[in-house]
Structure formats: structure tokens, C-alpha cells
């Protein structure tokens, strides 16, 4: 149901019944390694290209979801997913494998919440009973597409971020009361594209911060809540710079919130001593951290209500070379324990 200008409220509270999270070697050394279902010690994952390895990450995450939910591919009505690679081939190719009717979506690193919002909406309105949604990214595949060859010795500035190798997928299910101790989606706010004129592709956090702020403020306004309603507001991949900048923007807009409550998936996933500069990024970042770590924390009772705001920078290597600024977007989904 539409509420306010750009938000949906899910009255039937679709359930996130099962999740599958896969990761690469860098994530295995990270802070949240225990929250991954499958971890690989090699970026190639026994494939002969990074893009194929990327596809495997997605396929394995989906298989894990099905296994945990004790369902077959035929039981799933739709598959809503995307990634960062040109024409989202890793996702589409995994949809070829699983043969589930498929919506391919692109919202850069905001894809995870775009998918979760759409899946929840469909389920809430009876458009489907079971949907698998999520997103993935692969460090080397993204590096070679957006930046330089992986072995090129270019120096990255401290504002740069590290693309996560990983995928996070979830089964969103009609709430029939059978899934106990499973988080539910309650509402979602769809963001608009915000461009504050930043042009440095090595500072995505700074570019995306206004989009995150815009969506969070819109969410508060549409649902008539404030920051105190949530135990945790977590952004997708703003990194150190983006988190601090958007926190100041929110404070300037009159949002009163303890900074501890305002976290970022890009700062949660790796250890402090891992050389990731400003933090993690990639469409797999918010997906893997939410569907792994954060939902586990919710099930353990640490958080009751969280707002996940996945942020995406909608640039391409070509648009940047043609001197265009970086348009950004953020989508928010509110998740609660029943």
C-alpha cells in the first residue's frame, strides 16, 4: 500500500524465511566470516573467468536458500536480482541455471534493497508466494570493468573503496504464520536519483551520501516516524567518508540519532587492518551483510527493528570519462522481528 509520496507499507508482512550468503577469500579474513554460508579461498572459484566465478557465487547463494528452506526451484515464483557487471550477465546466467521466472534489475549497489522492496510488494499483494531476491558482486570482475586490470600497479587514494566478492540472497515468503523467529519486511521507501555534482569515481561514498540522506528523510516523513523508531539504521556501502558526511547531512536536517545507531555495511564486513581504504562497496556488500550478519543478529535478539538503506552510484566507466558527474540512488527497506 502506498504511504506518503514514495513509500510502501506491507500490511501482510512478508517473511524473510531463509537466506544464503557466499563470499571470497578477502571476506573469509573479514570480521563477519562466521555469518557466511559458503566461503571460497580463491577468487577464481575453479572457473576460467572472474565473471563465471561471479555467477557461481550467485548460484551457490540461491542453492543455499533453497536447501535451507527445503524447497525446489519449481516452488519459487520469481527471481528478482541483479549485479554490477555489464548487462547483469552473472545474474541472468544464474537465472538460466535455476529456471525460475526472472526479473533482472539494476540499481548498482542499491540492487539488493530494490529487489527486496519489489519482492515484498509482490508478495504483499498476492502476486507471488515465494520469491528469491538478492544481489552479488565480484571484486576482480568489478575492478576490471570499472577501473584497471587487477594486476595493474595504480595507486588508489584513501577515499577509494573495496568491492566485496560475495552474494546474499533471501527467500521472501507469504506470511502464513508457519515461520517462527523469522524477520519480516514492514515497509520500503524507493529513492530518487540524487546528483550533487561529484565526479571522482574513487570517492563513491561522498557521492552517494546525499542519496542515502534523501531516502532516509523521505522514509521518516512518509511513515511519520523518526530515528528513535529503529534500533539500527544501516546504509549499504557509504564507507567512512560517506557515513560521516551523511550523518552530518541528517543532523543538519534535524534528525537526532546516536552515531552508534547509524552503521554502514561497508564498514562492518572487514577488519580494521584489511587494506580497503574507506571501506567496502559493491552490490554484494549490503546483500551479504544484511542476509548474513544483520539477520542473524536480529534472530539473536540484538535488534528488533532495522532500516536498511542500500546506496548505489549509477555511473559507468564511459559516463565518467565523458566528464559526467555521478548520479546516485538509495532504497530503504524496514525489517522487523515479529
Amino acid at each position: 500500500m502506498l504511504m506518503g509520496k514514495q513509500s510502501w507499507v506491507f500490511q501482510n508482512k512478508p517473511v524473510i524465511a531463509a537466506t544464503g550468503v557466499t563470499g571470497g577469500p578477502f571476506e573469509a579474513n573479514g570480521k563477519l566470516a562466521a555469518d557466511f554460508d559458503i566461503l571460497h579461498d580463491d577468487l577464481w572459484i575453479d572457473e576460467d573467468s572472474y565473471e563465471k566465478a561471479h555467477r557461481v557465487l550467485i548460484e551457490e547463494a540461491c542453492e543455499t536458500v533453497l536447501k535451507k528452506a527445503n524447497l525446489q526451484e519449481e516452488d519459487i515464483h520469481f527471481f528478482i536480482a541483479g549485479d554490477l557487471i555489464n548487462q547483469i550477465t552473472p545474474t541472468s546466467f544464474s537465472a538460466r541455471t535455476n529456471q525460475i521466472p526472472y526479473f533482472g534489475i539494476f540499481g548498482a549497489c542499491s540492487t539488493s534493497m530494490e529487489g527486496l522492496a519489489l519482492a515484498s510488494f509482490m508478495i504483499d499483494h498476492g502476486g507471488a508466494k515465494n520469491i528469491i531476491t538478492g544481489s552479488g558482486s565480484h571484486n576482480a570482475a568489478a575492478e576490471r570493468q570499472f577501473r584497471y586490470p587487477t594486476e595493474y600497479g595504480g595507486q588508489k587514494p584513501p577515499t577509494a573503496q573495496w568491492t566485496v566478492t560475495g552474494a546474499g540472497f533471501a527467500l521472501v515468503k507469504e506470511n502464513d504464520g508457519t515461520d517462527e523467529n523469522c524477520p519480516v519486511t514492514v515497509s520500503a521507501t524507493i529513492g530518487k536519483v540524487v546528483d550533487m555534482g561529484l565526479t571522482d569515481p574513487f570517492n563513491m561514498g561522498g557521492a552517494m551520501a546525499p542519496a542515502a540522506t534523501d531516502t532516509i528523510l523521505a522514509h521518516f516523513k512518509d511513515l511519520n516516524v523518526d530515528a528513535s523508531y529503529y534500533d539500527l539504521i544501516v546504509t549499504g556501502d557509504l564507507g567512512e567518508i560517506g557515513r560521516n558526511t551523511s550523518y552530518e547531512l541528517l543532523t543538519n536536517a534535524g534528525v537526532k540519532m546516536d552515531k552508534e545507531k547509524y552503521q554502514d555495511c561497508g564498514l562492518l564486513i572487514y577488519k580494521e587492518d584489511q587494506p580497503v581504504n574507506s571501506g567496502a562497496s559493491g552490490s554484494g556488500c549490503s546483500a551479504a551483510v544484511l542476509y548474513g550478519h544483520l539477520l542473524n543478529q536480529m534472530k539473536k535478539g540484538k535488534y528488533k527493528r532495522i532500516l536498511v538503506v542500500a546506496t548505489g552510484a549509477l555511473l559507468s566507466p564511459m559516463s565518467f570519462q565523458q566528464g559526467e558527474s555521478i548520479p546516485c540512488i538509495a532504497h530503504a527497506v524496514s525489517i522487523e522481528m515479529p
Binding site: P157, G197, P210
Partner: peptide, 21 residues
Amino acid sequence: KKTPEQQKYDILQKKHETKRP
């Protein structure tokens, strides 16, 4: 080419941006 709003944001963002050493 930036609008006044964008310029204002640029200044705010620069405060948080890690400087190149």
C-alpha cells in the same frame, strides 16, 4: 557548472574526505 546547492555540498563533503597524503 555546479548549482549553489551542489557547491554547498562540495564544501561539506570535503570536510569528511580523507586527504591524499
